[in-house]
């Protein structure tokens, strides 16, 4: 499956981050939280684009604007 913004994934999907399209301040913030390219994320809940993701053992809530900036390649075998 092709890459798409994180905000479009449905709950339960797992995927790998392929890119973070944000300004440098924000990107550094996302990196510090573990949202770096190649990291595996799982969508816990999704509510109209705002989502809660689980990445390396932590859960973060991302608003839709933020979740649009994280590009992800979903795994085909979604749990």
């Amino acid at each position: 499956m092709a890459s798409c913004p994180l905000s479009l994934l449905s709950a339960g999907t797992t995927g790998k981050i392929t890119g973070v399209h944000a300004g440098e301040g924000l990107r550094r913030r996302l990196y510090a939280l573990g949202l770096i390219p190649e990291a595996t994320v799982t969508v816990v809940t999704r509510d109209r684009g705002s989502i809660i993701v689980s990445v390396c053992g932590c859960r973060y809530a991302l608003s839709r604007g933020m979740a649009m900036k994280v590009i992800i390649a979903p795994e085909v075998a979604a749990r």
């Binding site: 924000l26 913030r29 996302l30 939280l33 809660i52 932590c58 859960r59 973060y60 809530a61 991302l62 608003s63 839709r64 604007g65 933020m66 649009m68 900036k69």
Partner: peptide, 12 residues
Amino acid sequence: GESSPFIMEMPP
């Protein structure tokens, strides 16, 4: 302005 995008940790 728009509400700024946010990211917030959900503690366990």
